[in-house]
């Protein structure tokens, strides 16, 4: 095994900040939705609005980073080894077979991850923030000439749908973070930046 530097400090900062923001947004969002009482509706609305801006700013930086560093290429989907990776998680992992995909700084996501993250970045995130911003500026629709095209029912519906997808993604993602050996390896990598990978033969 050797240690490879995979996650730059910006990535790690971005990842954990985004994680914290999304957890809080999820908690406040579903309170606004009426699913439970946590901080109280009023507090949740305020929190949700402030955190939402935080997330948008963070995303703006992240998008900038992705394009300036070329890291966006990490998310180009590939079918190469896709089946192997899928078979690994449903079968090989139980037999302690090695992971069929080797990470490097240039290819830090396995093909399954690529697909999942691409879906997150292209579908879930934009749906969340576009619908969220429209939701936030509901009272400006008339002034912006949008009133005739939008209804709050649909905007809120899309926002809630995206929120559910995000929650499902989040649950799966958190679990996958521990699918490695030792189980804290990924977490440690996301903190220190170094992931242990098997040496090439």
């Amino acid at each position: 095994m050797k240690k490879v530097f995979i996650y730059s400090s910006f990535e790690r900062f971005w990842h954990w900040t985004q994680a914290a923001l999304i957890v809080m947004l999820m908690l406040s969002g579903f309170e606004i939705h009426g699913s439970y009482v946590l901080w109280g509706f009023e507090k949740s609305v305020q929190l949700h609005r402030h955190l939402a801006w935080g997330l948008i700013v963070l995303w703006a930086f992240a998008i900038f980073w992705h394009f300036t560093t070329g890291n966006w290429r990490q998310y180009i989907p590939t079918t190469q080894k896709l089946a192997e990776v899928a078979i690994y998680y449903t079968k090989g992992i139980f037999e302690h077979l090695p992971h069929p995909y080797k990470l490097t700084k240039l290819r830090k996501h396995n093909p399954l991850q690529r697909l999942a993250y691409l879906f997150f970045k292209l579908i879930i995130s934009p749906a969340t923030w576009i619908s969220g911003l429209l939701y936030m500026y509901f009272t400006e629709w008339t002034a912006w000439g949008l009133a005739g095209y939008l209804s709050l029912f649909w905007v809120a519906g899309i926002h809630t749908a995206a929120a559910f997808l995000m929650m499902a993604f989040f649950c799966g993602h958190v679990y996958m973070a521990f699918v490695c050996s030792p189980i804290t390896a990924h977490i440690r990598a996301m903190i220190t930046g170094y992931e242990e990978v098997e040496e090439d033969e």
Binding site: I32, H33, G34, F41, Y89, S151, L152, F153, A156, G157, T160, A161, A163, F164, L165, M167, A168, C171, G172, Y175, M176, V179
Partner: peptide, 29 residues
């Protein structure tokens, strides 16, 4: 539509089922 008062009953059900499937799937794994 009014936040907190209204919801999307079918989507809410499907949403929670999806979250449950992912969670239960992970735990089974």
């Amino acid at each position: 539509y009014m936040p907190g008062r209204d919801r999307f009953p079918l989507m809410d059900t499907l949403g929670w089922i999806l979250v449950a499937i992912v969670s239960i799937g992970s735990l089974s794994h």
